[in-house]
């Protein structure tokens, strides 16, 4: 059931937690292990603001297995205001509303239903900024 796999990703998926370099202030998403020779704690947890803009997008009309319920649905590369580029589904929007450069914000949604005896997997998506 991949319970441990999903559990390991919860910080990134639920609240867009990546890492910030304690010395340089560089940020990255998703979190990665330290590389050989690097102090293991030089990258600290960093929660991104969730604000960004659409860098590019496409609409999936033939939904992948397990995503039939939500199709057709847009996916995007989102440029976070802090810098990293994140691939994610877009939600709460019509195709006609979407444009490159459009401001979007992170929301936590149900990503996948693993079946009656499986997990409900939650994680980040992005939507056009409310307000």
């Amino acid at each position: 059931m991949d319970l441990a796999k999903h559990w390991r990703q919860k910080a990134a998926r639920y609240r867009l937690e990546g890492q910030r370099h304690r010395v340089t202030g560089d940020v990255r998403f998703p979190a990665q292990p330290a590389i050989p020779g690097e102090d293991t704690d030089v990258w600290e947890p960093f929660v991104f603001s969730g604000q960004g803009e659409i860098y590019s997008f496409a609409v999936l009309r033939q939904a992948a297995t397990g995503f039939e319920q939500i199709g057709p649905y847009p996916v995007a590369l989102v440029k976070l205001v802090e810098g990293p580029l994140v691939s994610a589904q877009l939600t709460d929007c019509a195709e006609a509303d979407l444009a490159i450069g459009q401001p979007v914000e992170m929301v936590t949604r149900r990503l996948k239903d693993m079946g009656e005896d499986g997990l409900l997997v939650y994680g980040y998506k992005f939507r056009p900024v409310l307000r």
Binding site: Y14, Q69, I70, T91, V107, T108, R109, R110, L111, L120
Partner: peptide, 13 residues
Amino acid sequence: PGPDEDTITMSIE
């Protein structure tokens, strides 16, 4: 609720 919404996701927002 949208197809990716439930009590947990709405509570979070």
